[in-house]
Amino acid sequence: MTALGSWVHAHPDGIHIPDGDFWIDPSAPRDRALVTHGHADHARGGHGAVLATPETLDIMECRYGPQSGQPVRYGETLRLGGVDVRFVPAGHILGSAQIVMEKDGERVVVSGDYKRRPDPTCPPFEPVPCDVFVTEATFALPVFRHPDAADEARKLIAAARANPDRCVLAGAYALGKAQRLILELRSAGWDRPIHIHGALQRLCDLYRAHGIDLGDLRPVADAKKADLKGEIVLCPPSALNDRWSRRLPDPITAMASGWMRVRQRARQRNVELPLVISDHADWDELTATVTELDPEELWVTHGRDDALVHWRRSQQKKARALHLSGLEDEDD
């Protein structure tokens, strides 16, 4: 008997399926790439053909220019070589998908990045029972338990209201996190304009084009310093301590990220108001998902793989780390 999933090859620079002649999230240019979602460590430019959800293709075109792509809708089944391929929602960001592959009666699911919490910008993660589950492990330590995102958004609003002479500057990853945070703020009752850094503009426009209503957004560049008092400003994390922030009235530095759960991490970044909001599964979500799917084997792509593998093995189940070096901890 051959080993389970022997037709799925894990290389440091991506997952290769020779029988279907394609790669998943390759970090080097390939003739045919299946891309789980638009984050830069998963979706790179320069591939021959890209197969991804229509939303992911739009994101890639927005970042890298025109792609010779083939849009694949959630649920649609393709046959590539001898492999049946299907994209199902991963609940991570707009367009994010798990890739479900079947060959000779064996099913392998590559999760990409995912979470189990509700997210108004994308459909929820769809659990697909499988023989091999290929998971991420960004927050795979039991110290990572994300609180309710709505409560975190309320903290941000409270800080803005309590400081009418300052502004709150929140760092949020430009793709996904920023738009989700805007929606959380909207549903927590913040209907004032939200001022955004130039780097967020195009992706916010893209979300809008996909029917997601972000409310009144205004470029920071258009506002006078005094007019930003008491307001909420969003920027990518890299701009938080940059010169750019000098145009703002005495900003309170906030950051929306799962890493903010650890105090020293927040302090290192000079964050005064940490907001624990993540688009990745936390420890409880990861372990609950694996328990629910109960795959024969668990393969871990990136993150704290040693902890997740250790946990799964302690239940007498097979697990191993793939060490995909192209994938990183998103600043997320």
Binding site: L141, P142, V143, V262, Q264, R304, A307, H310, W311
Partner: peptide
Amino acid sequence: DLFAMSYDYV
């Protein structure tokens, strides 16, 4: 072991 890995990280 999970505690040790977590402590190492935090």
